[in-house]
Amino acid sequence: MSRCRKMADIGRRQFLRGGAIATSGAAAAVVAPSRAKAAPAAALLEYPSNRLANIADLATNEPLDVSYPDDDAPGVLLKLGQAVEGGTGPDGDIVGFSTVCPHKGYPLAYDAADRTFNCPGHYSRFDPEAGGQQVWGQATQNLPQYTLRVDDNGDIYAEGVDELLYGRLSNVL
């Protein structure tokens, strides 16, 4: 996970004030019409179903960089090597998480030794073997985890996220 390591280093030196995460996409201003023909809205957010990787791309205990639900939302897929609650795939051991710290948005780095995601911002750490539970830290939510589906070809699709992603007031922008 060279990407995360490097960013962790940067994070420690506090170079990350703003703009660390690339931004893109056109602004979609919402202007309510003065006389209402109310726009029907779905009760749930529509998440894209995105193919993130194939099982063959994963090596045990080595996170694979992905993005979901769009390119501005970095995350990882991780094959843990033993089944965990919420794990998917034939061995029930594949999980996917956002790697943006839900505290203040610093990039998390993976420590393969004890299988935790660690934040250089303010030392928070999250346990991918326990649904992303914050082991210790300053975030007020556990790590957002992907809802994953694996098809017959071993392609891994993400189809939802279970917590609000840092830096956006709607998970789908």
Binding site: G18, A20, G105, L164, Y166, R168, L169
Partner: peptide, 19 residues
Amino acid sequence: VDLSEQQGADAEAWYAPSM
């Protein structure tokens, strides 16, 4: 701020569900 964009680290324009 344009909130249709991903905000960076330490952004003012974000709040968690706990807030």
